[in-house]
Amino acid sequence: MASPTIDLSASAKSRPRPSSRVPSSNAVIPDQASPALTRTAVSLEYAALRYSGHCPLGMYVTPSTGDLLVWDAVFFVHQGYYADSILKFRLTFPPNYPERPPIVQFLTDVFHPLISQQDGTFNLAPRFRLWRPKEHQIFDVLHWVKAAFKKHALDDIKEADCLNKEAYRYHDTTSSFAALATQSSMLSQSASALFDRDHPSMAGKGSHSIHFRELKSEQLDNLRAKLGLQDWGEITIP
C-alpha cells in the first residue's frame, strides 16, 4: 500500500498559509494537541540527529524548554552569497506529525526568495513537492534549509515557489541580489540581532531557546584558556 503524501506545491491562493503565530518556547501546548505517538516520533528524530551526517555542519538544534514540538535552531552559513550569516530559525511540528511536515520559520530577518518577509516562513515545496511521511524525516528538512542558501539551489528556484518575490530578481541581476544578501548577512551578525531579545525581528515570534552572550576581552581569554584554544593572532599557517 502506498504511503500517503501531502502536496506542498499548490498556489498560495489555494492552500492555507502557515500561521505566523508560532508557539513561543515558553508556551505549553495541551496534551491533546501533542499526542503520545507524535511526541515519540519527534523524540526519536531528535535523538537520531547525533548520527553522522544527520545534522548539517554549521547547524545547532534544540527542543524548546516548554514544548517538545517546537525546536529552535541556529545556522552558521559558511559560504556563498550569505557567507558569515548567523540565522536563527524554528521548526514547529503539527499535532499529527509525521503525517504533515513541520513549519519552518526564520526568526532572523533574511533576504531570501523562499523566506517570507512578513513572518519568516520558509517554503519547503521546492524540495518536498509531496511530503511522504514514511520517507521524509527532519534531517532531510534541515539539509534542505542549508542547501537553499547555496548557488545551485538558488539557480533552480521557480518564481511560483517564492515567498519573497523581490528576492527572485536574483535571476535578473545577480550583482544586485548579492549586495542585498551580503547586507542581510551583515545585519544578522550585528550585536542587536544577536544579543537583543527584544530585537524588532523577534516581534510576535516568541523567545528563542539558543541565546548568544557578548563576552568582554578578559572573559573571552579565560574561556579560550579553559578550552585550550589559541587566539587567532597566535595561529601560524605553514
Score class of each variant (00 low, 15 high):
Ala41Pro: 02
Met186Gly: 07
Ser11His: 15
Thr62Val: 09
Gln219Tyr: 08
Ala41His: 03
Gln230Met: 10
Lys134His: 04
Ser11Gln: 09
Leu68His: 02
Lys134Ala: 09
Ala225His: 06
Phe75Lys: 03
His54Lys: 11
Ile237Ser: 01
Asp156Ala: 15
Pro95Leu: 13
Lys88Trp: 01
Ala36Glu: 06
Tyr51Ile: 11
Phe139Val: 12
Ala181Met: 07
Ser217Cys: 03
Asp140Tyr: 08
Ala41Thr: 09
Phe111Pro: 06
Ser185Val: 07
Thr65Leu: 06
Arg197Leu: 14
Lys146Thr: 15
Thr173Ile: 13
Asp140Glu: 11
Leu124Asn: 04
Leu57Ser: 09
Ser14Pro: 07
Pro4Arg: 15
Phe195Thr: 11
Asp140Val: 09
Pro63Arg: 10
Asp140Gly: 08
Ser185Gly: 07
Gly204Ala: 01
Thr38Met: 03
Trp144His: 06
Pro98Ile: 10
Ala73Phe: 01
Arg127Tyr: 04
Ala193Pro: 07
Ala12Trp: 05
Arg15Ser: 11
Leu8Thr: 07
Leu227Tyr: 01
Phe139Ile: 10
Phe212Val: 12
Asn96Val: 13
Met1Ala: 10
Gly233His: 12
Asn222Arg: 11
Tyr60Gly: 09
Glu218Ser: 08
Gln219His: 11
Ala178Cys: 04
Ala2His: 08
Thr182Pro: 00
Arg129Pro: 07
Arg15Leu: 10
Thr108Asp: 01
Glu214Asn: 10
His211Lys: 15
Val145Trp: 00
His208Lys: 14
Phe76Ile: 15
Thr62Pro: 02
Leu130Trp: 00
Glu99Arg: 14
Ser34Thr: 14
Leu194Ser: 04
Ile115Phe: 00
Ser43Val: 03
Pro98Phe: 00
Gln117Cys: 07
Pro113Thr: 14
Lys165Ser: 06
Leu130Asp: 00
Ala191Lys: 15
Val42Leu: 04
Met202Ile: 12
Arg213His: 04
Ser201Phe: 08
Ile29Thr: 15
